[in-house]
Design a protein around this nucleic acid. Structure first.
Length: 411
RNA sequence: GGAGGAGUUCCAGAGCGGUCAAAUGGGACAGACUGUAAAUCUGCUGCCUUACGGCUUCGAUGGUUCGAAUCCAUCCUCCUCCA
């Protein structure tokens, strides 16, 4: 079975420009392919993860990934899938974000010995001459055709600036440029990138009279069709400082029953034979699959140690009692005490378990808070410094709701 | 360039001089039920306060008024139609 079939079987492939040729190229050839990333945040999130997975598969199959950072396009913003125009970033922000991306990506893609390439489209986009660009590239695009592209259609109803309209042209130009520089023959992207990818494929055909291909990856959605990896609080980040390995683990541990098997296929390298066994499970048995999913995904992003810590912390907490070892924590100092005590509300705010004292009070009143296993009855409960004294150190364990455990350490 | 319309709390979307911290729905959070699932039901959703109450919000800035999210002026942003 070739790598293409493997990707297909795992449900990673959404569309390909020319399935026969793409299959042949991936299974039998050696090529370079690229994925573009918009450096609009300082961390990758789960949405970026699947294309990187695919890149990883393809790299193992002998192809060379080119990770393209949109240092230039990031200053425009892709209208695909957005109903509002994106805010513009400064050059400094973009540079910072790119360096963060690089670090995170190296977990999944091997950059040693030129096995993968990093590129930044600012290298060729920022010095373009407008007139030359229009004459050379602009003539290859039909506005009529562009407007029929799904990504613009939606925006047309709400308004689309000329500025954003150029996104497709720039992305297509990236592909052409990578083709010329690295012999890049394929662009990989989320399924929402389809029209932009086609633009590049067509451009290469016109300018270079050569074949190029596009392959899109299914977006990760749950059984209700909502995008996964996003909570209302924001995305599930790959940066451990933004989403702790424990929270990351828990996110996957808590996926819906209907989504586990698909997530295993798409997000992990667990062999298909093993996954097939899970397909017959139902009800409570699925917890085993969920644990595997959570462990594997966490391991791939944060490494084996963190994954094991998260798993044992979760097991301990939910099985019985509390594992204080690997629990997310925060610190307070003696200065936070008044008369040798700290109010439960202040403590919750300090530990960032509540955004304000009002919210903290609400949690307590609704019975959602307990400290060291004792439910806090009302907002007047106070914790004295003596309560922090434990055999293993100075801390208390706060439980918020059913699943959130937090250790507050007294320094 | 001309004529209209709109900007409300996380989102959608009511309100159109006092009874508005602002209806309703969604989301989030908490409780019950459970399998660390889903569905369902309940509560809750600006900040400070045990509470009474106070404080800051309805694009921005000024103004009218005893009193403004609601009226007026200017500005900013967006939309629609015409050129």
């Amino acid at each position: 079975m070739g790598v293409y079939e493997e990707l297909k079987e795992r449900g990673l492939v959404a569309q390909a420009t020319d399935e026969e040729k793409v299959r042949d190229l991936l299974n039998n050839g050696k090529t370079s392919f690229y994925i573009g990333f918009d450096p609009t945040a300082d961390s990758l999130h789960v949405g970026h993860y699947i294309p990187i997975m695919v890149a990883s598969y393809l790299q193992r199959a002998g192809h060379r990934p080119i990770m393209l950072f949109g240092g230039g396009t990031g200053m425009v913003g892709d209208p695909s899938g957005k109903t509002d125009m994106r805010k513009m970033l400064t050059k400094e922000e973009i540079a910072h974000n790119i360096s963060c991306f690089q670090k995170q990506m190296s977990h999944l893609v091997d950059f040693s010995d030129g096995k993968a390439v990093m590129a930044n489209n600012a290298d060729w986009l920022s010095n373009l001459n407008y007139i030359d660009f229009l004459r050379d590239i602009g003539v290859c695009f039909s506005v009529n055709r562009m407007l029929t592209a799904e990504c613009y259609k939606q925006r047309l109803e709400r308004g689309l600036s000329f500025f954003e309209m150029n996104y497709m042209v720039m992305q297509s130009y990236d592909f052409l440029e990578l083709y010329r520089r690295y012999g890049c023959q394929m662009e990989l992207g989320g399924d929402d990138q389809w029209s932009n990818i086609i633009g590049g494929v067509n451009l290469i055909r016109r300018k270079e009279n050569a074949d190029a291909y596009g392959l899109t990856v299914s977006l990760l959605t749950n059984s209700e069709g909502k995008k996964m990896g996003k909570t209302e609080r924001g995305a599930v980040w790959l940066d451990p400082n933004k989403t702790s390995p424990f929270d990351f683990y828990q996110y996957w541990r808590n996926v819906g029953d209907a989504d586990v098997v698909r997530c295993l296929k798409v997000l992990t390298f667990v062999p298909m034979e093993q996954i097939h066994q899970f397909e017959h499970l139902e009800g409570q048995q699925l917890n085993e699959a969920k644990e595997l999913l959570a462990y594997e995904v966490t391991r791939q992003i944060h490494g084996k140690d963190e994954a094991e810590k998260a798993r044992s912390a979760a097991r301990a907490i939910f099985a019985q009692g509390v594992d204080t070892e690997n629990m997310p924590s925060s610190e307070i100092t003696a200065d936070d005490f008044t008369d040798d005590k700290i109010g439960i509300l202040d403590l919750l705010v300090k530990a960032k378990l509540a955004a304000s004292k009002g919210e903290a009070r609400r949690l307590v009143v609704q019975g959602g808070i307990s400290v060291d296993g004792k439910k806090a009855a009302d907002g007047t409960v106070a914790i004295s410094s003596a309560d922090f004294e434990k055999e293993k150190g100075k801390f208390v364990v706060i439980k918020k709701g059913k699943k959130v455990y937090h250790k507050v350490i007294l320094k």
